[in-house]
């Protein structure tokens, strides 16, 4: 503020001379001093017009361009990001679909294999059982035949024995009577 006071130096001589601080301002109050209006208006109009043309022709369009470019760039980048996100989503969807398909297919194959094996086992089991049953019945038949054969041998042996015994006892043989007697006994 001392510095500002020093700034008043040129005026101070006047004040010192007149001893009235305001005497140097003809109109008393400088902002209402009409003698300065004309030059102030002239220079205000000149400087403001210069400023207006500088701003409207040079400075502002340049700032606007920079701001617009940046806004476009940001919008572009956001668009691109959105597009990438969409692509990612699509890829994820496709992957999940493929995964589900694969899983279903695997399940199907497993089921099929299980069914096939089951079926084959069943078939083999049945074949073996059939073969076994056949063998059993064959064996049974053989047993029956052997039994029959044995029984018929028993009769002829019995007839022979009876015939021989009769021959030994009576000296004469009657095979027919012996056969009858054996048959009667065997019944």
């Amino acid at each position: 503020m001392i510095a500002e006071a020093m700034a008043q130096e040129p005026g101070s001589e006047l004040i010192a001379e007149t001893h009235v601080p305001d005497a140097e301002h003809a109109g008393g109050f400088p902002p209402f001093d009409a003698t300065t209006f004309e030059s102030q208006i002239v220079w205000l109009v000149l400087s403001f017009l210069a400023l207006y043309f500088l701003m409207s022709r040079v400075a502002l369009p340049r700032i606007a361009t920079v701001l617009e470019e940046r806004r476009d760039r940001i919008a572009d980048d956001l668009d691109q990001a959105a597009q990438f996100k969409r692509q990612t989503d699509e890829a994820i969807e496709a992957y999940e679909k493929a995964l589900a398909e694969a899983r279903a297919k695997a399940h199907e194959i497993a089921q099929e294999t299980r069914d096939r094996l089951h079926e084959e086992t069943e078939r083999q089991r049945q074949a073996i059982e059939a073969r076994l049953a056949e063998k059993i019945s064959e064996a049974e038949k053989q047993i029956a035949a052997t039994k029959d054969a044995a029984l018929s041998n028993v009769r002829s042996v019995a007839v022979d024995v009876a015939d021989t015994i009769v021959t030994q006892l009576l000296g004469e043989a009657d095979p027919a009577a012996a056969e009858r007697a054996v048959d009667t006994e065997l019944k």
Binding site: Q8, E9, S12, I15, A16, H19, P21, E24, H25
Partner: peptide
């Protein structure tokens, strides 16, 4: 400035309107 005011006998040392001249 201050000296001028002193000479003028107790007047205000700084003319507050001078800055608008």
């Amino acid at each position: 400035m201050a000296t001028g005011a002193e000479q003028s006998g107790g007047g205000f040392p700084v003319d507050p309107l001078h800055q608008f001249v």
